[in-house]
């Protein structure tokens, strides 16, 4: 199985009060628990069930994912730039694993 790898696109710079768009994607199979493998056996459920975004330590966006979300979940959302800071993204897997990523944004 391919390695689970988060990716994110945050503008490096933004002006004050500008609404930016943040795009994220994580490579993950998102097994819904209904799909079958080549031998006809059911693949156990394993999905990313939570996605959290913090800006300078404060939670700004959250999403609960269900099995109806596609493979390699893509999530895009807005953010109003006010000051320079660091975004922390966190994806939580059904098996308890957490995948993290940080991005810096400069506001001038």
């Amino acid at each position: 199985m391919s390695k689970i790898k988060p990716r994110g696109k945050v503008p490096k710079t933004a002006s004050v009060d500008e609404i930016i768009e943040i795009k994220t994607l994580i490579r993950h199979p998102m097994h819904s628990g209904r799909m079958k493998d080549k031998d006809g056996k059911k693949i156990p459920k394993r999905i990313i069930n939570k996605f959290l975004v913090k800006f300078n330590g404060k939670q700004v966006f959250g999403m609960d994912l269900e099995p109806s979300i596609s493979t390699n979940p893509y999530i895009a959302f807005p953010f109003k730039a006010k000051k320079t800071g660091i975004f922390d993204f966190e994806w939580t897997d059904d098996n308890g694993d957490k995948y993290n990523m940080s991005r810096k944004m400069t506001v001038f």
Binding site: D17, K58, V60, G62, P73, F77, F79, K80, K82
Partner: peptide, 15 residues
Amino acid sequence: FSFTTDMGACSATTR
């Protein structure tokens, strides 16, 4: 989706 006032707008995209 859980939104906060820090986002400035209420929109999102997924698949």
